[in-house]
Design a protein around this nucleic acid. Structure first.
Lengths: 225, 225
DNA sequence: GCCGATCAATCTGCATGCACTTTTCCAAAT
DNA sequence: ATTTGGAAAAGTGCATGCAGATTGATCGGC
């Protein structure tokens, strides 16, 4: 083929970046399941590029921990062991606790206000039982916490860990009563943050994640081969 | 050129892996300084490979945070801002605290014994003022802590953070009195761990890193352009 | 019928080359 | 002397092709 510029739209970023986003998205949303193979040729064909950028994208996804790569084998969507999954949830709880604690100490007035307002607004979603919407709100809530800690490196770590956990807790809000519990737990975190009580915020955040962890264990099992 | 197998030794791993290790090592040990450009062609020539594996290695180093990459620009050894450096040190302190706390709660008897023995042995290095040797021991000491937490994901995060900080605290033990202080701080951590006192171990570890952070600030400045 | 060997098909690892972008450098203008 | 225009040089992004590894299928031996 004659090396034609053929990318349809001029979306931001290089080819590789776009592919990383696209593939990561498929993994995180569950369009590709843990254990599934990602062969370079098919992906290249699918995205209408050569294997070179595909390989670089896969390497990056490997570094992110979303796919596992071994020499001369196809990349495989990461299917972690139960032990490793547990270690990620524990790490997540610890990181959330740190973020909540730091957020309680450091958030600006505006950040606190926004957090509280959003939290109040989310009550409506709980009453409607709007799984999807609450899930989206939930992501935003936690992101606010992470940003509120005002520590860029911790933000990166927690973001990465969260991405790697995503495939394993997709359906968490489907569990009966989970929505209400989540809302209440958020409430405790918010209250502690408004009082600038770092210790309490940390503890509330820790147990919030711990509970999510338990709820997810079910789905982790389901994903195993 | 005729695609000859030309790698000297059959060292473990693929070409890319070897290059990642080699380049990471140069960065971490200071053979290449923050801010320095890494152009693909020169590296390819240096390692006697084509640009393809070099590019993949650089992408991986980018994911590790050791080099910064922007489209159409050469990769550059990461030269973090003071704010980001600070966030990494803070994150490091938090992670160390977590590891120390978990280690105090979870280390096996053997692990505790080994930790204490090594710590005792390190006193000799302090008395001799053996900078280099103590530095090596220090790395081992902290690695023991990280492993002792028995959490694989946290181990990964702390290892990565440590690697990224390495270029900025290379010379820390050259500061007068730092050796002795470090030894004493290690002592507090060890004592707390032997008593299985997680809270105390965490606090001791936190302030240990905090102090290292202050000591390093000097060198961080020196590395700026 | 089941197991192991062999070969074809498939896929990954890397080299090479072209297109496009950034950088450098030199000359003309101010 | 300093700035500015612009072309040459250098460098990155990606496509393509070959060599070697892996996988799967077929066939002969037990």
């Amino acid at each position: 083929m004659k090396q034609v510029r053929r990318r349809e739209v001029i979306r931001p970023g290089t080819t590789v970046e776009q592919m990383v986003r696209a593939i990561a998205d498929m993994i995180v949303t569950g369009a590709i399941l843990p254990g599934e193979k990602l062969d370079e040729g098919s992906l290249a064909a699918r995205f209408d590029v050569s294997r070179t950028p595909v390989r670089e994208a896969l390497r990056e996804l490997g570094a992110m921990g979303l796919v596992a790569r071994e020499p001369n084998r196809s990349a495989v969507v990461t299917n972690v062991t139960e032990a490793y999954l547990h270690s990620m949830f524990e790490a997540m709880a610890e990181l959330e606790a740190i973020c909540a604690r730091l957020a309680a100490e450091r958030m600006t007035v505006d950040e606190r206000r926004a957090l509280e307002l959003d939290h109040r607004a989310s009550m409506a979603l709980v009453h409607q039982g709007a799984d999807e919407d609450y899930s989206a709100y939930n992501t935003e809530f936690h992101t606010r916490l992470y940003r509120g800690a005002h520590n860029e490196h911790i933000l990166e770590m927690v973001t990465q860990t969260r991405a790697r956990l995503a495939p394993f807790r997709r359906a968490q809000f489907r569990l009966p009563g989970r929505l209400t519990k989540s809302y209440e737990e958020h409430g405790q975190i918010v209250t502690a943050i408004m009082r600038a009580d770092g210790a309490a915020a940390g503890q509330a955040a820790y147990s919030h994640v711990e509970i999510v962890s338990d709820a997810s264990a079910v789905f982790a099992k389901a994903n195993e081969k």
